[in-house]
Design a protein around this nucleic acid. Structure first.
Lengths: 249, 249
DNA sequence: CAACAACTGTATCCGCCGGACACAGATCTG
DNA sequence: CAGATCTGTGTCCGGCGGATACAGTTGTTG
């Protein structure tokens, strides 16, 4: 334990924490930087939006900016930190709460979930970027803050509020994942549920006796599926459950 | 459209479909294979269990088996297909339904979710492996089958049953993700919720005025959080919502 | 049995990846 | 101006997934 290293729960992620949260001031000597974190991050996001996270390499980002890849390392300690920046930038400023002031927490939370789903739809690579140990950035934390604010008047305890946000955001990701599973590369399918059904049906050809419940469910869902149904059904069930609990307590 | 290529919704994933679903028979001529899909897959899973998905490379899998990496390509078309096999093998045979015969769909679904969560806890890399376009294997489909079977008597339509399973499995993944976010490499933290609270608290030091609802929620959750609370709270809310809907319809 | 076809495992090679390191030129401070 | 400092670059490395060509082994067929 030598030196003045700040003791922290973020082991080898100190770089990300500093980059995401710390405003590092420009040094006074030396040439002015020709690039900026902002430009680099935006460029990387652009690549990921069109070609998925796999299309983001230091080489490609640098080439897009007409620089050498090594020049990027003057701004970012490594690729992991760049991805962390991409995440927080792509999440963007959390939206203004809708209906929270009116005490309509259910509407506010539904609205929050929809806006979050829109973010995932716009940046499908976010799903894969979010897995694994990471540091939350200010925007990501801001999203959580907004959802918690909506739940403030429900009578739920602090822990329950956190848990509720986790369930809702879990549903958002689950739906986004289904969409992403059906698409190719960075572009999700337009009608995730229909595509999912089609893929399932294809797998089930000649195997219906092995998966009877699945076959029955798919047969029953035959034509009437809207692409929005899974989203709405799940979200409303979750909100129902939360409302019942809040009303009961 | 030349040749006898089977028209299918699985574009470049035909290899995975064949590997996961098709029983390819041994050719009669040539030397007997010294390896097996089974051995290769198990070895890869072992590497992933201890070092995460990033620790799985063709080189390392082959080295573990004392073979050259190129020999693996005699069994598997590419790494993507190997990962698909790892997923379906790690999922394992879906569990026997518990309480389904007794008509206790809620208990059966809760049991199903718990067993699924156990799988994710044992193979944390599954989370990252499941994102993106993929083909479902027989075991994965079997898990879905079991959940649907539990919901058969609820009166939900086929589509609603599928949606319900999606919500529950989404929650399972959400909880698994929180655990994985806190751990290092392949090993998740033992007390995910406590670690999450700690990390959040650390980020919030000196920033509580910027995230008031979050600070309040964390303060309210201070000591009393059990590591199982987020899991149970979310799952029971979802089941409540489903039960209310089923009872109403 | 001999010849051949089919199959397995290997060795070599390629392009791409993230990143360490040393260095030249630009810039500010004294 | 002299020295310190910072930026962008060129070079190099190990590791990755994978294509290809080839030698050795095996079953089939005349």
């Amino acid at each position: 334990m030598a030196g003045d290293e700040k003791s922290s729960a973020f082991g080898d992620q100190a770089g990300s924490v500093e980059l995401l949260w710390g405003g590092r001031e420009r040094p006074s000597r030396g040439p002015k930087p020709a690039l900026s974190l902002e430009r680099i991050t935006r460029t990387a996001i652009g690549l990921a939006d069109t070609g998925g996270l796999g299309a983001v390499s230091m080489q490609r980002v640098a080439a897009e900016l007409d620089f050498t890849k090594m020049s990027l390392y003057r701004y970012v300690p490594g690729k992991a930190e760049l991805v962390a920046l991409m995440i927080d930038t792509a999440m963007g400023e959390p939206p203004e709460p809708a209906g929270a002031a009116a005490g309509d927490w259910r509407g506010a939370l539904r609205d929050w979930a929809q806006r979050l789903a829109a973010v995932f739809a716009q940046h499908p690579w976010l799903l894969s970027a979010l897995v694994g140990p990471r540091v939350m950035g200010p925007n990501e934390l801001g999203w959580t803050e907004r959802a918690l604010a909506a739940l403030a008047g429900t009578g739920l305890t602090g822990g329950e509020q956190l848990d509720a946000v986790l369930v809702v955001s879990g549903h958002v990701r689950a739906i986004a994942q289904v969409s992403a599973s059906m698409g190719v590369g960075g572009a999700p399918a337009k009608e995730p549920e229909a595509a999912l059904s089609a893929a399932l049906n294809e797998l089930l050809v000649g195997r219906s006796e092995r998966f009877p419940a699945l076959s029955a469910a798919l047969a029953g869902a035959a034509g009437g599926e809207t692409r929005e149904q899974a989203w709405e059904f799940g979200l409303e069930r979750i909100l129902d459950g939360l409302e019942a609990y809040a009303g009961r307590g």
